[in-house]
Amino acid sequence: MSALLEVRDLTVRLRVGGSDREVITGTTLEIAEGEAMGLVGESGSGKSMTAKAIARLLPAGAGVEGSVHFAGTDVLALSGADLRRHRAKVAVVFQDPRAHINPVRRIEDFMTESLRTLEDVPRAQARTRAADALEEVGIDDPARRLRQFPHELSGGMLQRVMIATALLSRPLLLLADECTTALDVTTQAEVMAILDDLRRDRGLSMLFITHDLELAGAVCDRTSVMYAGQVVETSAADRLHADPLHPYSAALVQARPDVTSTAERLVAIPGRPVSAFEAPSGCRFAPRCPHALDSCRSTEQVLTGLDAGRVRCERAATLRGRLLDPTESPTESEETADA
């Protein structure tokens, strides 16, 4: 399997009020051609920053270490025209479509802008391509939609416009950052189906960012779980649910209520999720981990292969298979104690 995208030991620091703040630490992941990789984690874990680093959309002054290779080129070294070409090949769709579209310009202008300015496509041809793209994402009467303004479209429809626009530059990789979070479940299913079709028809690779483990499990080939700026586990998506390798993944699985059965009581994770810069040394999950030992707190955890997956936990092999077992849960105390 040749990797289309290879991220190695990526660390990103942002300048915040005069000091550097680490927001992702040593992220490693790769995506093969046509593969969908899920990136799951709670807020502030660094999912969006990872996507931004890949698309080279980090805020000015960001310090980046490690490497990002896309289709063989070193992404972090790109500039000028090469960078623009890279961004055309890596399309991004964000959570809130309305925040990323100019409300006073028509859908057509928004969709065709980069085609016409970057690729010099004539207006009529750009319009036809935009209309085709809208059709591909299931929007009826595209000619009329192109003439409309963003406020005339519902959120779900606008998100499909964003996806269609992203597709116009014929990208190889789609970075979907919580692109269905603001949508109804039914609309979400619709958008997911469209992404799924596109992936099959075009051989598109995808980094699918979400906080919803079930969603990632259902539509991705593999899933990476992030905590406090680090990837703590990468596993086959369908296995993550039944056989998580990392205590945090297991805790996420258990904390979510289940639509098919009612739990007596949810197994909540004590404390709150943290970002990289506020994480403790040693295992970053240790303060919330029910399996933590003193050695966890004193040793930096490294991402190591385990079976077909990778996990950042020194006890992973020992705990293997027991993480979801309720009788093994050492405590469910203090779940209301917000650290």
Partner: peptide, 17 residues
Amino acid sequence: MSVPVQAGVAAEVLDPV
């Protein structure tokens, strides 16, 4: 629209930015 807030705003607050 009813879900405009990003799921999981929890951590972001205690972040100084």
